[in-house]
């Protein structure tokens, strides 16, 4: 009885987790159906399996240069993630540790701007990118993405929790500010940084409107934008859309599964203290 009670959370959580994944299983199964079967609720499992959706999506590089898109997506998301992690950690260090005048107000401003709907910025950002001659380059997606407030806000919340005593000891040992940042704060905030990295990578990967508005050449598109090619206001090619989606999401899931131990597990051992 006692043993049963102890394992009750395991059972409940396993069941919950399964129900969360079910819609994705439906998506995966549906991507192997012929178009006529796609929306049929009576057979969630395909009656006759087909890979024709995948063959179509991967097969016509003139319409959908998939490998090129994968390369673009990887480059853009990796670079955005790197820059956001770096900029946010540095800014948070300056805000929480360096006693600069006005930093508190700056953080307030950063959080406040997060409350303005992003759609409002679309036209001004387009015009700025145009002036900087960055339209239709990957930088049009990378540079504006580093300006968001989420990372700085998150890193400040975590950085505050790092005990000052450790830094002070390092300073007494003759470490420079840069040294303290590199050797003390950055490692101590690794878990928070990793979390930020995961969220940033996923956000950048899934950006949908940005690539369509800021890029003109199909060759510069990112993977998820491919989904847009099979959907219109009236007709959705469900099989092709879902197959593209599976292909676009799979790299994310693989990266997350492989690195999740390093990424999130490390949080348990150090970092945020309430």
């Amino acid at each position: 009885m006692k043993r049963l009670k102890r394992h009750l959370p395991d059972a409940i959580m396993a069941f919950t987790a399964l129900s969360f994944v079910l819609p994705l299983v439906v998506m995966l199964l549906t991507s192997f159906k012929p178009e006529a079967e796609v929306l049929n609720p009576e057979s969630v499992v395909p009656d006759d399996w087909t890979t024709s959706n995948y063959q179509h999506v991967l097969g016509w590089s003139e319409e959908a240069p998939f490998v090129r898109w994968l390369l673009n997506s990887l480059f853009i998301s990796t670079t955005v993630t790197l820059l956001v992690m770096l900029f946010s950690a540095m800014a948070a260090y300056a805000i929480t540790r360096l006693r600069l005048p006005g930093t508190k107000a700056f953080l307030g401003l950063v959080v406040a701007t997060m409350m303005l709907p992003a759609q409002l910025f679309l036209v001004p950002v387009y015009l700025i990118l145009s002036q900087l001659r960055l339209l239709d380059t990957p930088w049009a997606l990378i540079i504006p993405a580093t300006a968001g407030g989420f990372g700085v806000f998150l890193m400040c919340q975590f950085m505050r929790a790092v005990p000052r005593t450790i830094e002070e000891a390092a300073l007494i040992d003759g470490c420079s500010k840069l040294g303290v940042f590199l050797h003390v704060n950055l490692p101590l905030c690794a878990p928070a940084l990793a979390t930020l990295g995961v969220f940033t990578f996923i956000g950048s990967w899934n950006d949908f409107v940005g690539p369509l508005i800021f890029l003109d050449s199909i060759r510069n598109y990112t993977l998820p934008v491919g989904i847009a090619l099979y959907q219109s206001s009236y007709v959705t090619e469900y099989g092709l859309t879902l197959a593209t989606s599976v292909l676009a999401t799979a790299p994310l899931i693989v990266v997350f599964m492989v690195f999740q131990r390093q990424i999130i597990e490390s949080m348990a051992t150090s970092g945020m203290k309430g």
């Binding site: 394992h7 396993a14 919950t16 989606s245 999401t249």
Partner: peptide, 27 residues
């Protein structure tokens, strides 16, 4: 109670968030 199970559950709960909004919506 099981660490590996916890990791798996955590990943499974997080996976829907990786889906593009356009696809989540049509599904």
């Amino acid at each position: 109670t099981q660490r590996w199970a916890r990791n798996t559950v955590r990943a499974m709960l997080f996976v829907p968030g990786m889906l593009n909004v356009a696809v989540a919506a049509i599904l």
